[in-house]
């Protein structure tokens, strides 16, 4: 009985916020949806199917939501040049308006997380200190302590976060693109997401007080510089000091 109640609770909790947002998106603009459908048929349907139901080469997009489209298309990952393990960031094919239209169309197919609002992702209002502890436990294992990215298995990589917009960071967390796990709004609340964004943005914008940051790679680049520059210059000095001299020099 308890279990059944809990299950109902799960289903309700899972559906209610999403449907709410889906409605909001659907009501956005019928014009956008039509335009989105046209673009989808041109550029996306070959992999994702005519009705976004998915094919062998591309997953179903029903229910992925506008946020997923905004992230994938807005960062140029989609349309993919050649579908593979790693979908690299590249110059977006579609402009903002077209991306919005595509997002509206995909959202109209089955709801899903919406594109976050500007206020939702404003780094200035986020709590960076909270973001720090959330970032190192949930994000740094892939994206590195300074958001520099890192290696995954099978030739995949976690991308760096140096240029990712706050809105795309949010969308990525909520939709879990490619290999990235999902952090939905009920597990990591929008406010906590904003804290993470604040931390990422503040970290990447802050100067390196110690001089050149050496790509913020840590001991690997430090060791390289220590050997090549440090020891290299010192040995050059040793060569100068001990060099043989000509008779009259």
């Amino acid at each position: 009985m308890l279990l059944a109640l809990a299950v109902i609770g799960v289903v309700y909790a899972a559906l209610s916020p999403e449907t709410g947002r889906a409605e909001a998106t659907v009501s956005a603009s019928v014009k956008d949806v039509t335009e989105g459908k046209r673009l989808f048929d041109q550029s996306c349907a070959s992999c994702h199917g005519l009705n976004a139901e998915g094919t062998k080469t591309g997953p179903s997009l029903i229910g992925v939501g506008a946020a997923a489209v905004d992230f994938q298309v807005g960062t140029g990952r989609m349309p993919a040049a050649n579908p593979g393990a790693q979908m690299p960031r590249k110059r977006p094919v579609f402009d903002d308006q077209q991306t919005k239209a595509l997002a509206a169309y995909v959202a109209s197919l089955g709801g899903g997380p919406a594109i976050p609002s500007k206020e939702q992702v404003d780094p200035a209002t986020g709590d960076a200190a909270l973001g720090q502890s959330l970032f190192i436990t949930n994000c740094a294992q892939c994206h590195n302590f300074a958001g520099g990215g890192g290696a995954l298995t099978g030739g995949k990589k976690a991308p760096d976060l140096h240029e990712t917009t706050p809105s795309h960071i949010y969308s990525a967390m909520i939709t879990g693109p490619q290999a990235m796990p999902v952090f939905n709004d009920t597990t990591v609340t929008p406010e906590q997401k904003r804290a993470i964004i604040a931390y990422i943005v503040e970290t990447r914008e802050e100067p390196n007080p110690g001089g050149f940051g050496l790509d913020r790679l840590g001991p690997v680049s430090e060791g390289l510089v220590g050997w090549v520059v440090g020891l290299g210059l010192i040995v050059a000095a040793a060569v100068w000091i001990t060099a043989k001299q000509r008779e009259n020099d």
């Binding site: 899972a14 999902v182 597990t187 990591v188």
Partner: peptide, 22 residues
């Protein structure tokens, strides 16, 4: 409880397949 926030987690909240949390 979620590491970093200390908040307890309901199964219903942790509902998106592909999700992780510490």
């Amino acid at each position: 409880v979620v590491d970093g926030t200390g908040e307890p987690l309901r199964a219903a909240d942790f509902s998106s397949p592909g999700g992780i949390i510490t």
